[in-house]
């Protein structure tokens, strides 16, 4: 039985290599051989239509093919209504695609007998404003809710919850307070811990910085980046702001009008900063500065992602000039 499963997995992947446009993803292509053993989520030509059969019928996603390997930091960017929230709900099986297939480790997640609960433990999804889902009497028991649903015993749940809370930088003195007495940023941390406690291989965060002040935003983003390094999981950071993700992610998927527009390294995506504007997005501010400098005749590379990189590049250019 395992043999057949592996064989089907193989054919799926081979088909996909033919279909997907991995050519332009120079930095991301994995060798064919590794792909067969690689874990992760694969979307095959997935479309999703809301309210099918009514006047409100809208196609949220059209023909998306996407590969999400293990241990990668991905930014999923799109304007409001570009389909990014729909896309993340397809990734853990909350929504069923209208057409196309979603594979996890080579297996169709909507096939009969597929363990959706195990999938949701492996693919953790943190919704927008996750603090709105808190309900328990204290923070620790709220974080234990996820592991408990997986059928783990009390001691293991507690251990995982404490670990998750530590990973999001929650101090022990808060473990026994009511989640409703926490500040906004702390509530969000507690809610992220609630998903983290399920030990996902892939963690999806939908606009984790929405509604936070600049300081809270930097704290959460720093925390996510830290988690990525410490736990070596795949993180998908959904956002509409390039400035948020540019600094952290290794790959950016840009969504526009329900379609995948770009899928590349941040540097390559930001080269298209004019096309990004047509999608209601913008490249990081630093990209604009560097491009303006070059338009004024300064001999700089425009692909700096952070202020530090830009400063170094400008200094270098200044030295090069006679």
């Amino acid at each position: 039985m395992t043999d057949t499963a592996e064989v089907t997995g193989l054919t799926d992947e081979t088909e996909l290599t033919g279909l997907s446009d991995t050519g332009e993803l120079a930095g991301l292509t994995v060798t064919a051989e590794r792909k067969w053993t690689a874990m992760g989520i694969t979307l095959e030509n997935v479309s999703y239509v809301y309210e099918q059969g009514t006047a409100m019928q809208t196609a949220a996603l059209q023909g998306i093919s996407l590969e999400i390997p293990d241990n990668q930091f991905i930014g999923l960017i799109g304007h409001t209504g570009s389909g990014k929230s729909t896309l993340v709900q397809l990734l853990n099986g909350l929504l069923r695609p209208t057409s196309g297939r979603v594979l996890y480790n080579g297996k169709d997640i909507h096939e009969d007998g597929f363990d959706k609960k195990a999938l949701r433990a492996n693919v953790g999804l943190v919704f927008q404003y996750p603090e709105h889902q808190l309900f328990e009497v204290d923070v620790l028991s709220d974080v234990m809710y996820g592991p408990k649903n997986l059928g783990l015993d009390e001691a293991t749940c507690k251990k995982r919850a404490i670990q998750a809370l530590e990973n999001v930088g929650m101090k022990e003195k808060y473990f026994k307070t009511s989640p409703f007495d926490l500040s906004g940023g702390q509530k969000r941390r507690a809610a992220i811990a609630g998903v983290l406690a399920m030990n996902p291989r892939i963690l999806i965060l939908d606009e984790p910085t929405a509604g936070l002040d600049p300081r809270g935003r930097d704290e959460i983003l720093g925390l996510i980046s830290e988690m990525k390094q410490k736990l070596s999981m795949t993180i998908i950071l959904v956002s509409h702001s390039m400035d948020d993700v540019a600094r952290y992610v290794e790959r950016i998927v840009v969504m526009g009008h329900g379609k995948k527009v770009f899928d590349d390294t941040p540097r390559n995506v930001f080269k298209h900063y004019i096309e990004l504007e047509d999608l209601g997005l913008s490249a990081p501010q630093i990209t604009y500065i560097m491009n303006t400098l070059r338009d004024y005749g300064m001999d700089v590379h425009t692909d700096a992602l952070t202020v530090e990189e830009a400063a170094a590049e400008i200094l270098r250019a200044a030295k090069r000039q006679p």
Binding site: Q89, L94, R120, F127, Q133, Y145, G146, N149
Partner: peptide, 13 residues
Amino acid sequence: DKIMKAQIARGAD
């Protein structure tokens, strides 16, 4: 619907 989905994502049944 949103809360339900969020709790399903945390393994709720």
